[in-house]
Design a protein around this nucleic acid. Sequence first.
DNA 1: TACCCGAATAACAACGTTGTTATTTTAAGA
DNA 2: TCTTAAAATAACAACGTTGTTATTCGGGTA
Lengths: 319, 319
Amino acid sequence: MAVTLKDIATECGVSYSTVSKALKDSPLVTEATKRKIKEKAEEMNYIPNNSARSLVSNKSHTIGLIWPAVDRVAITTLATQVNEALKQAGYFMAVSIDNPITAASKFLELRFDGVIVFDEGEATTLPEKITNNIPVIAYGVARKLPYPIINVHHNWAMKQAVDLLIEKGHQSIDYIGELHTKDIRQIVKKETIENYCREKQINYRLIDSGGLTETATKQAVKEFLKTETLHDGIICGSYDITMGALHHIDGLESRKTIIAYDNIKQFKSIEMPIYSVGVPAEQIAEGLVKHLIRNIEAERKNTSEIIDLYPSLQYHEKK
Amino acid sequence: MAVTLKDIATECGVSYSTVSKALKDSPLVTEATKRKIKEKAEEMNYIPNNSARSLVSNKSHTIGLIWPAVDRVAITTLATQVNEALKQAGYFMAVSIDNPITAASKFLELRFDGVIVFDEGEATTLPEKITNNIPVIAYGVARKLPYPIINVHHNWAMKQAVDLLIEKGHQSIDYIGELHTKDIRQIVKKETIENYCREKQINYRLIDSGGLTETATKQAVKEFLKTETLHDGIICGSYDITMGALHHIDGLESRKTIIAYDNIKQFKSIEMPIYSVGVPAEQIAEGLVKHLIRNIEAERKNTSEIIDLYPSLQYHEKK
DNA sequence: TACCCGAATAACAACGTTGTTATTTTAAGA
DNA sequence: TCTTAAAATAACAACGTTGTTATTCGGGTA
């Protein structure tokens, strides 16, 4: 069916091993021969067989990304960045949106070179039976795993946010975010606010956004405002939550300081200036890829390390 | 490194070909031997090598999905459904969010069995050089391609919507949707409204949502309402656009009829009852998978056919 | 002219499977 | 006990590559 090295060899009147060498620019083949072979290969639309290559070289130059919850906008940006970073490093990224164990098993069967997991807590833990056999790196909230995890330090971000509000003179803080959830990211943010505000002896309230979407938040804040008013120092748990809350915040209320948590850069077309805190997706992607590739190339066993990335504050004004 | 058939064979004191047969439950091996081998394989954590299998059988039982724009919610639902349908049919789905040509070339090298493309028009057309070598099916708006495309007939949907509004007695229609875009889906919807309303001699206005998001629509409709008012018959181009528009529509205005275009089923927690029109994602997924698998198994060449799926109207009320 | 050396190319083994063919083992019948 | 057929298992070729080893082919030198 498909064109093989042998077909090209027959066509060019050389042996197939010469074709193999020619196509990978080996110095063992004359320039003239190489040129002829390459032309012929192009003409015949030769497509290398990765299965055969992988069989002999034990390399597929493909990385599997396990991404069970394809929704969040922030993480979509991250996926794109990871794809880019991997491409740069000479690897192809194949995503599975299946459940983590199924996905990882298949990646193993396909002899991919490594696995990246968008970790969502317990349900996305890969068993050692799998992780003993392939380099893995996770992205998520710090926890003990048989493979490294990159942690964007949500609590450090929240502390920075609180510190800024204090510095700006706010004595009372409102945190708007998802409170009733199993999403570990949201839990960490919420709990950090609680603990740190107590520690700093600052008043705080937790306002449930009722979900991670703009719509949910808009509705929730509307309800909240029926009986209470918002404080001037506000921390929002995500980009979408910020957008939802902003429906009810007058752009001219310059007393207010709003800090949004997120990993994306563009906070554009917002009426009032806001702060954001988080690790840029690009930086996370780079970290994931760098660590994974290093482990692949060193043929190192997975370790339990936790790799911390520290968020930074940014100020956004409508241009 | 990894455990192979040979390792299991040595361990069990049989030949590797017997192990191969045992593991796939061939009747050529005694039950007792099979049991012993299977236990040993499990114990040794044997993971079949897909590269080797693929090399000899020319099957990888893997389908590549080309999905260059990982964002829209509706299409996320579809991806999940496609994954499910493929799994049901015994195939694994690997997604690439890279550009279509790169993705398809890699799928070819990896010797995947077929390709599904979420078509976005010209930029996502695969060249025959690729499509001559692997079964392909696209999902998008009907157009001539060297491979089949499943078309959800946006224009038929829009016509149904207009017909319903006419039937309900509305003489003037507002269409809220993305007007300035290269997204062919949006263009088709817009143009169908224009042409069909003219044909039916109905007044219509096109209101630009300024994008496909809820936020953009909310803002756009707000602007619009500063100088004009909405008609009672309203068609919204998507789920998110509907949500955006609903911010400005009083839940009690029962004179109004709102029809939302989308392929998802859940239009929940909406204040006022609305209609929706579209082909359910599940049905699209089923169509894609059925056609693709059929072509794979029949080893048929790709054809240029256009496969139409017809949308249906649904009524949604808050429960 | 015969010899040798290096350059160019060819031949071959291996990777881990599957499916076909060959060999061994088992048990039944005489 | 021997023969024979069937059942069980073993051996082998093939899939398309890569990397190593073997062979061939031209010169240049004696």
